Computed example of a mutant assay.
Amino acid sequence: MIRAIIVDDEPINISNLRALLMRHCEGIDVVATATGADEAREHIIELKPDVVFLDIEMPGKNGFDLLRSLNDTDFDVVFVTAYDTYGIMAIKFSALDYLLKPINITELKNTVNRIEQSVNTRKQNSRLNNLLNLLDRKSPDESQKIALPTQKETYLVPVKDIVRCESSNNYTTFYLTNGAEHLISKPLYEYDELLSPYGFIRCHQSHLVNKAHVASILNEDSGYLVMNYISQKIPISRQRKSTIKSLFKI
């Protein structure tokens, strides 16, 4: 059984989630609940759970404050929240699980399945640290790392080392400065939203490029971006041609 703790300042939310887990997720055993960060911290230290279902917005110390207060985060975290702003962007950036209230049962089941897979192959510590570092920054920083979860391993890659991203249906391939390629089972639009503050440009429906790694612009057809490190030219769609020109002040 996977040992779980639920943390939420609203007892009704705790009861609802607990009931959903009991009804739909047989492999989860809720060993404790807490309505505040300090109480949750005591339970986590004492009971050493496999997963914590954690609300973000709570009076006093919030969910992120709780995580910062722990010396050891050797457990999975699923954020359960209605906080659909920068916090969720940071969580996505770190490839951590979250559930938006009201909880969708299918999404809950999928999350529990991922937890079961993760228990024996812990990648959570570095991903949580990445999340907290990101939240502490006031502005985009290219040294920030993004978590790229492949089928076999989750890679933490500095944003500055990403040359470009290319979509294929619901998959995205990341091309890095060292020649590595990582295939991720997420659509390109999710990374467009995450990476645009770091200077990435959607030059085509299927292509997202790091402006810092553009070597030149070819005037053939509707135009192409030639990238450093990769001897490929990336097409510019006709709809985005004027936007690209204005970005490079052409």
Rank of each mutant, 00 (worst) to 15 (best):
A82L: 15
L67D: 03
M58C: 13
A95G: 05
P59T: 03
E42D: 10
I146T: 01
L134Y: 13
A32I: 04
N104S: 14
A147V: 01
E42Q: 01
E26V: 09
V77T: 04
R127P: 10
N104R: 09
R23F: 02
F93T: 13
L70C: 10
L108D: 00
F64N: 01
V119T: 05
N120A: 13
L67T: 14
L66K: 06
T85Q: 12
A40G: 04
K109G: 12
E107G: 04
K92F: 02
K123F: 14
L131Q: 00
R137Y: 08
G60L: 02
N130K: 05
T111M: 00
I88V: 14
L47Q: 15
N113I: 05
N71A: 11
D97Q: 08
P140N: 02
R122P: 07
K138R: 08
G63F: 02
H43W: 03
A37I: 07
N71H: 13
L134D: 10
K101F: 14
V112E: 13
T81F: 01
T33P: 05
K138Y: 15
F93Q: 14
N62G: 00
V112M: 06
F79Q: 13
F93A: 11
P49R: 06
R127I: 12
Q117C: 08
D74Y: 13
A95Y: 03
G27S: 06
G87F: 02
